[in-house]
């Protein structure tokens, strides 16, 4: 069963890695936020899923302390799914308000309407 845990950790790492590369490859703050939100949320979810599976296995084999670890990790998973996009939204909004223009943008309706 530890193969499942390793597979989940591996998938999580792959998406985290993609998020890191996105920060280097994309041209401006908005496109970078795409990589920095979706990939990190999804990658973290897989890593947490790995932790949950591991602690659930230990819990079922009789170690009750792992129950709270599984519960805590599940709570963290829910929290990060709520807070990560909210934080990204705050950063993108702050960037636009302080005058950062999207690079190569075909249309910027927010700029057109606020000016």
């Amino acid at each position: 069963m530890s193969g499942v845990v390793y597979a989940l950790l591996g998938i999580g790492l792959f998406f985290q890695f993609m998020g890191a590369i996105a920060l280097h490859r994309f041209p401006d703050v908005y496109t970078r936020m795409h990589g920095a939100t979706k990939c990190t949320t999804f990658g973290s979810m897989f890593i947490y899923a790995g932790v949950i599976v591991y602690s659930a296995l230990r819990w079922m084999s009789g170690d009750a302390a792992y129950m709270s670890m599984a519960l805590h990790t599940f709570l963290v998973m829910v929290m990060i799914m709520v807070t990560n996009p909210t934080g990204a939204h705050a950063i993108a909004r702050a960037a636009h308000r302080s005058g950062v223009k999207p690079v190569n943008a075909v249309v910027d309706m927010l700029k057109e309407e606020s000016s």
Binding site: D28, T31, P102, N104, A105, V106, V107, D108, M109, L110
Partner: peptide, 8 residues
Amino acid sequence: RINPGIVK
């Protein structure tokens, strides 16, 4: 391959 823009 990107083609970005902000829409309402």
